[in-house]
Simulated assay, not measured.
Amino acid sequence: MITIVLLGMLVGVILALTGAGGGILAVPLLVFVLGLEVADAAPVGLLAVGLAASLGAAMGLRDGIVRYKAALLVAAAGMLCSPIGLWVAQRLPNRPLMGIFALVLMYVAWLTWRRTQASPPGRSAFTKPPPCQLDVNRGKLNWTGPCAWALTLSGLVAGGLSGLLGVGGGFVLVPALQRYSNITAQSVLATSLAVIALISAAGVITSSAAGHLNWLIAAPFCMGALAGMLAGRVTASRLSGPNLQRGFALVSATVAVGMLIRALL
Rank of each mutant, 00 (worst) to 15 (best):
A89S: 15
R91K: 06
P96D: 10
L105R: 00
L92G: 02
M106S: 07
V104Y: 07
R95D: 12
L105A: 05
L103S: 06
P96S: 10
W113H: 09
R91L: 10
N94A: 15
L92Y: 09
L111T: 06
M106T: 01
A89Q: 07
F101K: 06
V108L: 05
G85E: 09
Q90C: 12
N94F: 08
L97R: 05
L92V: 14
F101D: 05
L86H: 02
W113T: 02
Y107E: 10
W87H: 12
L97I: 08
A89N: 11
P93D: 11
N94P: 09
W110C: 12
I100N: 01
V104P: 00
A89M: 12
R91V: 06
W110Y: 15
M98N: 03
N94L: 15
V108E: 02
V104K: 00
A102V: 02
G85H: 03
T112K: 01
G99W: 05
Q90R: 14
F101T: 08
L105E: 03
L105H: 02
V88M: 15
V88Q: 10
V108F: 03
A89V: 13
T112Q: 00
R91S: 12
W87F: 13
W113E: 04
M98Q: 15
P93Q: 08
P93R: 10
A102S: 13
T112W: 00
A89T: 09
W110K: 13
W113P: 04
M98P: 04
I84R: 00
W113S: 03
W87P: 10
T112D: 01
L97K: 06
I100D: 04
A109L: 07
L105N: 01
P96N: 08
Y107L: 15
P96M: 12
